[in-house]
Computed example of a mutant assay.
Amino acid sequence: MRHIREVLRLHHSVGMSQRAVVRRRRPEWAQRSNKSGSGKPARAKEPTCSGLPAGKTLHSFDFEAVPMVSKAQVSALAAGDGWLGKGANLLLFGPPGGGKSHLAAALGLALIENGWRVFFTRTTDLVQKLQVARRELNLEAAINRLDRFNLVILDDLAYVSKDQAETSVLFELISARYERRSMLITANQPFGEWNRVFPDPAMTLAAIDRLVHHATIIEMNVESYRRRTAIERKRGPGRPPEHATSKTRAD
């Protein structure tokens, strides 16, 4: 709910004049219909073709460390039928080290195993490739090629620099996939801080509107797994502090 309130606040702050700019007509290539239909696709290629990091599975994901993530909800998302067929999105928020990338990759692998086509990439890597495509006057074709994937996973959105060239190609990708193809995005910052990613308030609002219109939002606000592991390693073997025997005081 906090993220939805931030979207409403952004609507108010941008104002009607900027929102008129947001509603400008999308390019014809971004409005084309889904030629492959909305049904479940044929069996996908091997997972190694998707860009997924190795070893990130739902089986190895520590659900106990992230209690706000429901196993039942994740299982439903892993099936894919309830959202990928509709071009809906999944947004994972939380501080670094909370398991967002692991969960995103694990869901991607499960979806591939269920016959969907998935592409996983760091946001900065894809944005750089799209920038090159734009310079070569090939951006439309580059975005079109991503249409063969039912789901594009953009990991670490917040690390895109606040640069007009970078954020504009990212916005065009979001706009092109809107209501047609799904996206899974992980981000450290809540919507209220996305002005650090998109330099223009109208573009920020437009990107958020398209992403949340048909979206599931999961907030993973937990302590960093890496920090937790480092503390435990430094502490060394022995009983955890909460189970240690306290020193007996003299009467």
Rank of each mutant, 00 (worst) to 15 (best):
R2H: 08
I4A: 11
V7W: 14
V7R: 14
L8Y: 09
L10K: 11
V14I: 15
V14H: 11
Q18L: 15
A20V: 08
A20G: 08
W29V: 06
A30K: 12
S38V: 06
P41C: 07
K45T: 07
P47I: 11
C49A: 15
G51F: 07
L52C: 03
P53N: 05
A54L: 08
L58W: 04
F63G: 00
E64Q: 13
A65W: 06
A72P: 00
A76P: 04
L77Y: 06
A79C: 12
G80Q: 07
G82K: 12
G85F: 05
L91T: 01
G94D: 00
P95Q: 00
P96E: 06
L103E: 02
E113A: 11
N114Y: 01
G115V: 07
V118D: 05
F119V: 09
F120G: 06
T121N: 11
T121K: 06
R122Q: 11
R122L: 10
T123A: 15
T124F: 10
V127L: 01
V127R: 00
Q131S: 05
V132W: 03
R134K: 14
R135F: 08
E136A: 13
E136V: 05
E140C: 07
R145D: 13
R145T: 08
N150K: 06
L154H: 08
D156L: 02
D156H: 08
Y159H: 10
Y159L: 13
Q164M: 15
F171W: 03
L173H: 04
E179P: 03
R180T: 11
R181K: 14
M183C: 12
I185G: 03
N188T: 03
P190L: 05
F198A: 07
M203G: 00
L205D: 08
A207G: 02
H214K: 15
M220G: 02
M220Q: 03
R226I: 03
R228Q: 10
T229Y: 05
T229N: 11
T229G: 04
A230V: 09
A230R: 12
I231P: 04
E232T: 14
K234H: 12
P237E: 13
P240I: 12
R249N: 11
